[in-house]
Nucleic acid binder design. Structure first.
Lengths: 259, 259
DNA sequence: CGAGTGATTGATACACCTCAACACAGGTGG
DNA sequence: CCACCTGTGTTGAGGTGTATCAATCACTCG
């Protein structure tokens, strides 16, 4: 049905970033991440625990089945979660943008491959101490529950896309989701003319949408020819009219991923 | 891409079941539902709050956008969550079996349609009191977090199915999931010869798997002709060899839905 | 320059959808 | 009792959207 993954991840590794420089108070995701509702002594405790890690675009973060030593928040960049079948068919099952949470408390093995799609900085916590703190800190557990419920909603929206949308609608939906989340970063509503950057390669988009690279490429070409999008290089896009794109996506009420 | 939903839900309604008869101690899902880790006074408080509702097969439980007055655990039967696009394309996004939780704390509107696939009994809690209790009872919040994380894992497994599996693999995967969960109810591993009952119509299966009714029917016929399954009436199935079915499903390590 | 990677485009194949007819069981009413 | 209807599932013929296979292009890097 689709080609085995031939692409080899480059084996280069980034050393851990010099840890603990940044203060939580200055953190760009301070009020959106899992730590959002922690203050005072609790924030202090997290601050003590945390350490940063950086990954270059294309680097693996975790392999399915690996022991996980840490959980983490994405500070900057984009990471992906993918499932792989024995014969190499791959499906992306999660797209982690800044403030999203990576890892599952109470589970010591990764359920999916995690990969850096762009350069990524993670704010990590060792699993043991973090689990312990979660048991003692209700607002941390509540925040994580909220975020997980948002993830579940996003996953279900995504299932609708995978199961019932055409290739053209899938591409339009994907671009709309990215546009909305980039707009949300600047605290603006997505509307009118938008310039944006795709955070994924065509291959990763294909894995996200349950398509092949070729189909992704063809549909992008088609949307360009129909004036729905303009293409600027490999990753750059201009949306002359966001509403037009949403029309193409198959649903106006496009809920989509949590911001 | 697929036909608008023409099926009309029969307008018959069941009155609420005589509430509060059953004691939590006798509940068949006592140690698997959201209340599993509550004891003593907490269980007592839930017991006071709870009320039962019954729905006949085919009845709607909630419409997308409805105000939700309660959250609930499925006690017996099977319910479904579905998303619908304006043009009528439908995708099931959740399959709720006994002990699964319905509803989202902290949200007052339903995000999807919920429907009784078979006759269903729910153990309900009014939203306000339940939310309040969740804020005061860490083990309740933790249990719900755990269950939500399981749901998220299941949704992601499902995404792999929707995005990358063939029709035949989808059918085999679905049957395997149901077989495993039915086996789990009897606390047995799924293996060898299994007799089972499909809890869904062909239409609901199609909505689950992102297929059409016709394709579902054809693939079941094909699996029957290949000796992978035997068909007993509309809903009955015999699996001569569970392992053979799993082979057909595309993945041996078939994680799937939480039990 | 050549090698390598990511993306585009074209020709063809086929898996699944669409439309349509039919089978079968259960219920209802004359 | 049988004719009729309705809901559910099966089967067939044909069309189409996307995958597959393959060639080429644009860029970057050594």
């Amino acid at each position: 049905m689709c080609k085995p993954a031939l692409t080899q991840i480059k084996p280069r590794r980034t050393d851990d970033a010099p840890s603990g420089d940044a203060r939580c108070g200055d953190c760009p995701i301070r009020y959106r991440a899992v730590c959002a509702q922690c203050e005072g002594p609790e924030l202090e405790r997290l601050e003590q625990m945390k350490f940063y890690r950086s990954y270059q675009a294309g680097q693996p973060i975790l392999w399915e089945g690996d022991r996980t030593e840490f959980v983490a928040s994405v500070v900057t960049g984009v990471a992906t979660l993918t499932h792989t079948l024995e014969d190499g068919r791959r499906q992306m099952v999660g797209l982690l943008l800044p403030s999203d949470f990576l890892g599952r408390p109470g589970r010591d093995r990764a359920a999916y491959d995690a990969t850096a799609a762009t350069d990524v900085v993670l704010c990590c916590f060792r699993r043991g101490p973090f689990d312990q703190m979660m048991r003692q800190t209700p607002q941390l557990a509540h925040r994580l529950l909220d975020m997980t419920l948002d993830d579940l909603d996003a996953a279900r929206e995504w299932m609708l896309l995978l199961g019932r949308k055409t290739a053209r609608e899938k591409i339009a939906s994907f671009i709309a989701i990215i546009a909305r989340r980039q707009a949300a970063l600047h605290k603006q509503p997505a509307q009118g003319r938008i310039e944006m950057e795709l955070p994924l390669t065509r291959e990763a988009m294909a894995d996200y949408l349950g398509l092949t690279i070729e189909t992704v490429s063809r549909q992008i070409t088609a949307l360009r020819q129909d004036g729905v999008i303009e293409v600027r290089g490999k990753r750059g896009l201009v949306l002359p009219d966001y509403a037009r794109l949403v029309e193409e996506s198959g649903d106006d009420s496009d809920g989509g991923l949590p911001d």
